[in-house]
Design a protein around this nucleic acid. Sequence first.
DNA 1: AGATCAATCAAGTGATTGATTGAATCATAT
DNA 2: ATATGATTCAATCAATCACTTGATTGATCT
Lengths: 230, 230
Amino acid sequence: MSISPKAALLEEYALIARALSAPARLSILEQLAQAPRGVEGLAEKTGLTLANCSQHLQHLRRAGLVTSRRDGKAVIYRLTDATTLGLMDLLRMVAERNLAEVARILRGLSDGEDPPEPVSRAELAARLAEGSVTVLDVRPADEYAAGHIPGALNTTLATLEQFLPTLSPDARIVAYCRGPYCVYAHQAVAALRRQGFDARRMEGGLPEWRADGRPVFQGTDEPLSAGPAR
Amino acid sequence: MSISPKAALLEEYALIARALSAPARLSILEQLAQAPRGVEGLAEKTGLTLANCSQHLQHLRRAGLVTSRRDGKAVIYRLTDATTLGLMDLLRMVAERNLAEVARILRGLSDGEDPPEPVSRAELAARLAEGSVTVLDVRPADEYAAGHIPGALNTTLATLEQFLPTLSPDARIVAYCRGPYCVYAHQAVAALRRQGFDARRMEGGLPEWRADGRPVFQGTDEPLSAGPAR
DNA sequence: AGATCAATCAAGTGATTGATTGAATCATAT
DNA sequence: ATATGATTCAATCAATCACTTGATTGATCT
């Protein structure tokens, strides 16, 4: 041990930052924020090859951001704790505040229109309680099944168009997706507004909703969400 | 623009993480958290060559973590905002919680003894007001001069030994340094406790104290800190 | 025990990064 | 204008990284 403790500490901190420095790994973390998963599932969701995905996961594990457990033949990975989410969220905040490129991309998602202010999770919870809102979960069906806001309807961007007619034209819609990294809700809101709907985005996504300690419904056989209910 | 907006966003977020992924850059950020500085000053403080330091600074600027302004011939860099400090702090939290290596290093700083709980900044402020505490600033003199907790005495690890006799043996000492990344205060507390003093560490460092909105004294000619006062 | 499936390991390749050196800017002072 | 001082740019090299391919391990099921 010839190097100073200070240098050794900085090296460790840098290791964590390095783990977050590849888009592929951020993508994996976003997935793991939805629900724990095996390597193959993650590879499929993120579009990485299996071996590549496994290697990225080991980067993340060395950095202490994820942990794994064996379940039969499968190895299930999950986020170590909510601090990881906090890190990703700060990353995003710095990016939105200080990088012009990010602002440009986000504007592009809304066709140049100024998107309405997002709805806070607390406000959405309140409006859900009084039934004055239609909540839209804009994620793949399997992630919806793994957990969603009670009462939320599920659709994807691809099927949004067929879904529209089932909505009342004066419904007040709030959409959410995987979280602040995800652009599905942005795009869904833009599409809905083009059609004249009153649509806004929820701040954050399901992981943040869950981190707030709010109720999450698991499964698909919930009355309100069975099929394209109105 | 052939790549998806989502991939583009992840790329930008990764850029920020990459900026934090080199120990040299973390070191620079820690310095900038003390006070804005020119390239040459930073190079000297961090032990980097000038050109190398300049390149690291440009990495950080591209990531939006620091900004620069010209002052005559010099270019002064400073942190863009306090969010950057938050990022570094989360990095440290994840490291301390999840990396065994970090826990090992931190234990080593205290000679294996269990260090006492750090004093919160609020508690220190209260005890300062009632005068029941001796505050020690364990940073180089120039950083002390650029801003310190009012009433704090300044010494470094190297000169600590000569400083000891000027302290009352039953003084209750609280030490601080650059911040959570810095090990000076850890080491000073360990040294003081070896000598039988009642010494503890303040939580965080001067940047965190300042971020709390607490008073900061600039200069060296403050009555309490002129010379090795008692 | 052998077959099967999920995941990891190992080796190789092209691209990127960090550090070094020396030359080129840019703003000020002479 | 020219010179000076502070910083940045450009070119280079070794080290590291991301990704691919193919072999290997570990746990289950016949």
